[in-house]
Amino acid sequence: MISVEAAAQPLPPVSGQPRPQAGTLVRDILTALDDGKAEDVVSIDLHGKTSLADVMVIATGRSNMHVGALADRVVKAFKEAGVTPRVEGLPAADWVLIDGGDVIMHIFRPEVRQFYNLEKLWGVGRPGELRA
């Protein structure tokens, strides 16, 4: 049960810089993705856009097996940071969602990523993509 004092504390603002824990976690996730040879990695700052999370990371794996292996590395990075993420999309591994609260991770096969185009949804371009 939450104490009256804890309930009276205001929630942190949606806008502003990511909390230090989120920044450290993102750095660990990006390292895990780099070590796993992920492609087209994009980090999107969600501050002021949603209260869903602070940061969204999107990456591409070359095959279902590669997507699954990248997901395993990212889940390990979350757990090492003391976060138990919720994972959706395994074992099929066309698209894996890893929800760690402050940080949300999407890992796609190339054609699935192109179909959903989350970068466009959140108003950012993919690496190497020209914007009109």
Rank of each mutant, 00 (worst) to 15 (best):
residue 57 V to D: 11
residue 116 Y to G: 08
residue 127 P to M: 04
residue 14 V to D: 11
residue 72 D to H: 13
residue 84 T to L: 08
residue 37 K to R: 15
residue 97 L to C: 14
residue 120 K to F: 06
residue 38 A to G: 09
residue 68 G to W: 08
residue 68 G to T: 03
residue 85 P to H: 10
residue 108 F to C: 15
residue 56 M to L: 15
residue 10 P to Q: 05
residue 130 L to P: 13
residue 54 D to K: 04
residue 85 P to M: 09
residue 7 A to G: 03
residue 129 E to M: 11
residue 10 P to F: 06
residue 47 H to I: 02
residue 78 F to W: 05
residue 99 D to T: 04
residue 114 Q to P: 06
residue 73 R to G: 02
residue 21 Q to L: 03
residue 91 P to I: 10
residue 3 S to V: 00
residue 3 S to Q: 01
residue 97 L to W: 11
residue 120 K to T: 13
residue 85 P to K: 09
residue 117 N to C: 05
residue 131 R to S: 12
residue 34 D to T: 03
residue 109 R to S: 07
residue 53 A to I: 08
residue 94 D to S: 13
residue 104 I to W: 06
residue 118 L to K: 03
residue 113 R to I: 11
residue 90 L to T: 14
residue 123 G to Q: 03
residue 55 V to Q: 12
residue 123 G to H: 02
residue 110 P to S: 12
residue 100 G to Y: 05
residue 57 V to N: 12
residue 113 R to E: 06
residue 3 S to A: 02
residue 58 I to Y: 08
residue 24 T to A: 15
residue 76 K to R: 13
residue 33 L to A: 01
residue 56 M to E: 01
residue 42 V to I: 12
residue 112 V to T: 15
residue 79 K to N: 14
residue 8 A to V: 08
residue 115 F to Q: 08
residue 39 E to F: 00
residue 92 A to S: 05
residue 38 A to V: 03
residue 128 G to Q: 02
residue 98 I to Y: 04
residue 39 E to C: 03
residue 76 K to E: 15
residue 126 R to E: 13
residue 9 Q to W: 02
residue 83 V to R: 06
residue 104 I to M: 14
residue 65 M to Y: 08
residue 118 L to D: 04
residue 10 P to L: 10
residue 7 A to Q: 14
residue 102 D to I: 07
residue 11 L to V: 05
residue 50 T to N: 10
residue 72 D to G: 14
residue 6 A to P: 00
residue 128 G to H: 00
residue 17 Q to L: 07
residue 105 M to D: 13
residue 22 A to F: 01
residue 28 D to A: 15
residue 55 V to A: 08
residue 74 V to S: 07
residue 100 G to I: 00
residue 111 E to N: 12
residue 118 L to I: 15
residue 93 A to H: 13
residue 28 D to L: 01
residue 86 R to K: 13
residue 106 H to P: 07
residue 25 L to Y: 02
residue 61 G to F: 11
residue 132 A to T: 12
residue 11 L to T: 01
residue 16 G to E: 09
residue 70 L to H: 06
residue 107 I to Q: 04
residue 96 V to Y: 07
residue 48 G to F: 08
residue 30 L to R: 02
residue 50 T to R: 12
residue 17 Q to K: 12
residue 120 K to H: 13
residue 45 D to C: 05
residue 60 T to K: 06
residue 54 D to I: 01
